[in-house]
Every structure is written in structure tokens, then in C-alpha cells.
């Protein structure tokens, strides 16, 4: 049994998933930031960078249909674009007209995406899974938004997304789906590209994470429902909800933290559920790249 991926597979992953995601994410946002100082334009540029990175990786690897009206993971690409665009519009609406309208728009977009991405057939039924996915994505996104406001949004969110994405990819590959693993790595690479530029230009990229807030839970839900492995459901749930660990930092004593203390605490908080999930997956399944 060969549990280490052979070099051609790693090379293909770097060239067709990681590099396109990172290069487009960083390149587009850097280009936008270098030509405009407008926060609004930079935010739109970030959304375009995220969409572009996903699209290029998807094109190179053929991971998802470009358009689908099916319930569940096949609609992940258009639903994620809707979430990214909706997140940006909600942020701009909040800035222009106040929290209430922006919040209502945000909830509507996430509810629509969750409804779209909930699989039709599951033990809980479409509505049951929709409710769980909506709550998970809402909790994830809200904590990103609030942590961003707490100044975590600049460089540290990057530190949260990297372990989140790696944990998702690890759990999904142990569930024997290379396609879903590729998608987790593609999303993470694109966010890394955006995160690096956002840190350099001191942008609050939290708004751009709305796509991940629904993308990762929906992807992990797709993995839990559609794969055939011994990986426990708890692994998928723990990774899907890992950013919710950041809510701990919203508690009164930690609320005043900032700088390195806050960033390190955020990293540790997210690492704990991710590490447990990966540990459970590794204990349940082994990999065999020999086949």
C-alpha cells in the first residue's frame, strides 16, 4: 500500500489547482489595489479575484459543472459565486444604507445558497439539511465578519483559512474523493493569494470569506453524503464548523485582545477542531495511492 501520493500527482495538483488559484487570487487583487485606493473597488476586485481563481482551477481540472440547478454539490460553483457577489453587495449596502438592509441581504443570500446546496436525498431530508447548512454557514460568516471588525481580518484570517482548508482536504481525501479534495485545495489556494495581498495592502478581507463560509460546509456535506468510507460524520462536521471556534474570542475577557495575542489565539482555536477531525479521519481510513 502506497499512502504517499506519487510525484506526478503532486506536480499535477500544484500546476492545475494550487498555482492557478493562488496566482489569479493574488494577481487580480494586486492589480486592482495598485490602480485604485477606493475600498469599494478593492472589495469588488477581491470578489473578482476569488471568482477568477476558482474558475481557472475548475477549468484546468474539470471539477464542477459551470452551471447546475441540481440540489447539492454539483451546484457548488454557481452557488459560491452567488455567495461571493451577494456578500460584497451586502457589505456595500451596509455601508450605504445601514446594518438592517445589509444584514437582511446577507441572510437571504446565504439562505438561498444553503437551499441550493443542500442535497435532495439525505436522512434528514432537503429542508433538514438546508437548515443545518444555513446555520453553519451563517455562524461561520458572522464570526468572520465580526472577527474582521476586531482587526483579525487583515493577516490573521489567512492563518485561519489555511488550517481550515488543509483539514477539509485531508478529511475529504481520506473519504476517497480526490475531486472534493482538489476543490478544498483550490479554494484555500485562492484565498491564500487574496489573503497575502490583503495583508500587504492592509485590506479587511473578511467580506470576501463569505464564499468560504458556505463553500466548505457545503463541500464537506457533499463529502459526508456522497462518499464511501469509514471516515466518521463527526470529522466532516468538525471541519465544516471549525471557524465557529472563533466565537470563543468574542467572549468578554478575550474581546479586548488584539495583535499577536488575538492572531495566535484564533489560530489555536481553529486548529483544535481541525486537528480532532483529521485525527478521526486518519484513524478510520488509510490512503492507497497504489491504485
Amino acid at each position: 500500500m502506497n499512502s504517499v501520493p506519487p510525484w506526478p500527482i503532486v506536480q499535477s495538483m500544484i500546476l492545475t489547482v494550487m498555482l492557478p488559484g493562488f496566482a489569479v487570487g493574488a494577481g487580480v487583487l494586486a492589480a486592482v489595489c495598485s490602480v485604485t485606493r477606493s475600498e469599494t473597488r478593492r472589495l469588488i476586485g477581491g470578489a473578482l479575484a476569488l471568482a477568477g481563481g476558482l474558475a481557472l482551477g475548475n477549468s484546468a481540472r474539470g471539477l464542477l459543472p459551470w452551471w447546475s440547478l441540481e440540489w447539492g454539490w454539483p451546484s457548488l460553483f454557481p452557488a459560491t459565486l452567488l455567495a461571493i457577489g451577494g456578500g460584497v453587495i451586502a457589505a456595500l449596502t451596509t455601508a450605504a444604507t445601514g446594518r438592517r438592509r445589509g444584514g437582511a441581504l446577507r441572510v437571504s443570500v446565504l439562505a438561498g445558497c444553503a437551499f441550493w446546496l443542500a442535497p435532495a436525498e439525505s436522512p434528514l431530508g432537503h429542508l433538514g439539511v438546508f437548515a443545518l447548512l444555513f446555520v453553519a454557514s451563517m455562524l461561520n460568516w458572522e464570526v468572520f465578519r465580526r472577527s474582521g471588525a476586531q482587526s483579525l481580518g487583515r493577516a490573521a484570517l489567512l492563518g485561519v483559512v489555511i488550517p481550515w482548508g488543509i483539514a477539509a482536504a485531508t478529511v475529504l481525501i481520506h473519504a476517497h474523493s480526490a475531486r472534493f479534495c482538489d476543490l478544498a485545495i483550490l479554494q484555500t489556494s485562492t484565498l491564500c493569494g487574496i489573503g497575502v495581498i490583503a495583508a500587504m495592502w492592509r485590506l479587511d478581507s473578511a467580506t470576501l470569506f463569505v464564499g468560504s463560509a458556505i463553500f466548505f460546509p457545503a463541500l464537506l456535506l457533499g463529502g459526508a453524503v456522497n462518499t464511501f468510507s469509514e471516515v466518521p460524520t463527526a470529522s466532516f462536521i468538525l471541519v465544516a464548523l471549525a471557524p465557529c471556534a472563533l466565537w470563543v474570542l468574542r467572549l468578554a475577557p478575550m474581546r479586548r485582545w488584539s495583535g499577536r495575542t488575538l492572531a495566535t489565539s484564533a489560530l489555536v482555536a481553529v486548529l483544535i477542531p481541525c486537528a480532532i477531525a483529521v485525527g478521526l479521519a486518519l484513524r478510520a481510513e488509510t490512503l492507497d495511492f497504489g491504485h
Binding site: 476517497h176 456522497n226 468510507s229 490512503l287 491504485h291
Partner: peptide
Amino acid sequence: ATKLTAHLKSPDFFDAKR
């Protein structure tokens, strides 16, 4: 190969659940 069976049934290939 057991792990290959699981991989073939996954959304990567036959997508047996759908």
C-alpha cells in the same frame, strides 16, 4: 482493491449515491 472500489463509487467516477 477495496479502497479503489470506494474511490470509483465516489463523485470522482460513478457517483453511486446520485
